[in-house]
Design a protein around this nucleic acid. Structure first.
Length: 161
DNA sequence: CCCTGATTCGC
DNA sequence: GCGAATCAGG
């Protein structure tokens, strides 16, 4: 972010108008962290923060996990990487247990996971699965299947029973 | 889990 | 100085 005088003015203006940091970020095309960080440095009047940090100065618990190296997060998947680029086998701390193969591993998305649970195919037969697409917010089905799942009472008369 | 703002700290 | 990561509360 290039904090030109104009950008700073805009930030101050939006801040003064009481927009949330995320909203300001959206309007300015930057992250809310950039907004809050800059506002903080500019000593803009703090907003009512949902957090108290004064109370207990975090006794002991925060060992603050070392941040992962940035490059590690953007490294291409191993499948797409030439063997010659293969990273050194990092010291393995824990070995993942071998995957358990079940008849229908994907049949039941874990409760609490977010994927469309509209059934596809015949239950009990091979190939049966759930849709699994991104569900609508607050609904168990994707937009497509929510349209099928949620029928207005008015519209249900005709085909009911 | 979505949101919020605040702080830290590698860059 | 910057802002992602993190924290912490709703």
């Amino acid at each position: 972010m290039d904090w030109t005088a104009e950008a700073i003015e805009r930030l101050k203006a939006l801040w003064a108008e009481g927009h949330s940091t995320a909203e300001i970020g959206r309007r300015m095309g930057i992250s809310k962290n950039a907004v809050v960080g800059k506002a903080h440095r500019l000593n803009l009047p703090a907003r009512p923060s949902p957090i108290r940090r004064d109370a207990e100065p975090r006794p002991a618990p925060a060992p603050r996990a070392p941040r992962p190296i940035p490059a590690a997060r953007v490294a291409p998947p191993a499948m797409l990487r030439p063997a010659s680029m293969a990273p050194q086998p990092a010291p393995v701390v824990a070995v993942a247990p071998p995957p358990v193969v079940r008849p229908f591993p994907a049949a039941r998305p874990r409760l609490g996971s977010r994927s469309c649970c509209w059934p596809i195919g015949e239950p009990g037969t091979a190939g049966f699965r759930f849709c699994g697409a991104e569900p609508m917010s607050g609904k168990p089905y994707c937009t497509e299947h929510a349209a099928l799942a949620y029928v207005k009472p008015r519209d249900r008369r005709e085909d009911a029973a």
